[in-house]
Amino acid sequence: MRELFDFFIRNSKWFVYAFFVVASCMLLFQGNPYQHHVLLTSANSVTSAVYEVSNNVTSYFNLREINEDLNRRNASLEKEVINLREQLQRYAEAEFNDTLATGRDIDHFDFIVAHVINNSISRPFNYLTLDKGSADGVKPELGVIDQNGVIGIVSGVGPHSARVISLLNPNLRLSCKIKNSDHFGSLIWDGNDPTMALLEELPRHTVFTPGDTVVTSGYSAVFPSGLPVGVILDDGRNHNENFFTLKVRLFADFTALGNVQIVMNNYSEEIAAVEQTDADSDKKRGY
């Protein structure tokens, strides 16, 4: 018995070695890595704390590369955004074409969708530039609207561009009426605020309240009647005169114009011809 103990003690290093080798091999050939105890992986608290400290330091080392990667990614995403936006705009134009023609007497109006490529709001006389011109059928004296309301009237046309007198231009007087009444006045910009205009020459007996909608009258053959223009802001009527002057908040946001529609009146020549006959006969009768 004693000899046996002596044997164990003398050769203890072999047994210890065998024990640890077996333990290591058990770890080594355990097979399924999902079955490892969490203490024996780098996910335990001590290890993760050490790695967290080192990561706090080393995460700064390759910031430049990460930054470059992010920039590259950013550029590609931006490209994608631009692509998608163009696509969206194409769809918006198509939808715009389909849905906006809703008026009663809208049948003889055609619409050309155009994009605003230049716009000013801060000068005393403001103009827009559109990307459609005579090649697309745009002519001078056509109305321009967007999804919110009236924008202006085409004044000059190039082959592929058109200049529009903005509503924010005192040269443009727009014949307007208050919705649900037939009294009309003319809308004119006073040069101060791109969101405001004045409705002048409104007969004194017109009944309205602030908040009523101002729409196009349809008397000019440029715009169909009933297109929204703005909303009456305050009751600034001057009772001493025969005509009111009202402040109108415009629906169209001139600071952010994108797609617009050019209104083409198919009967405009006919109307002009009829009006011309009247004027001629007036002249003949000596008025």
Binding site: F20, A23, L28, Q30, L40, S42, T47
Partner: peptide, 20 residues
């Protein structure tokens, strides 16, 4: 060896080599 194994997620490899 086991400590290094735990850090580097190589169960048993360094432990066996270190023991030897």
């Amino acid at each position: 060896g086991l400590a290094v194994d735990i850090f580097s997620d190589t169960p048993g490899m360094n432990a066996l080599a270190c023991t030897t």
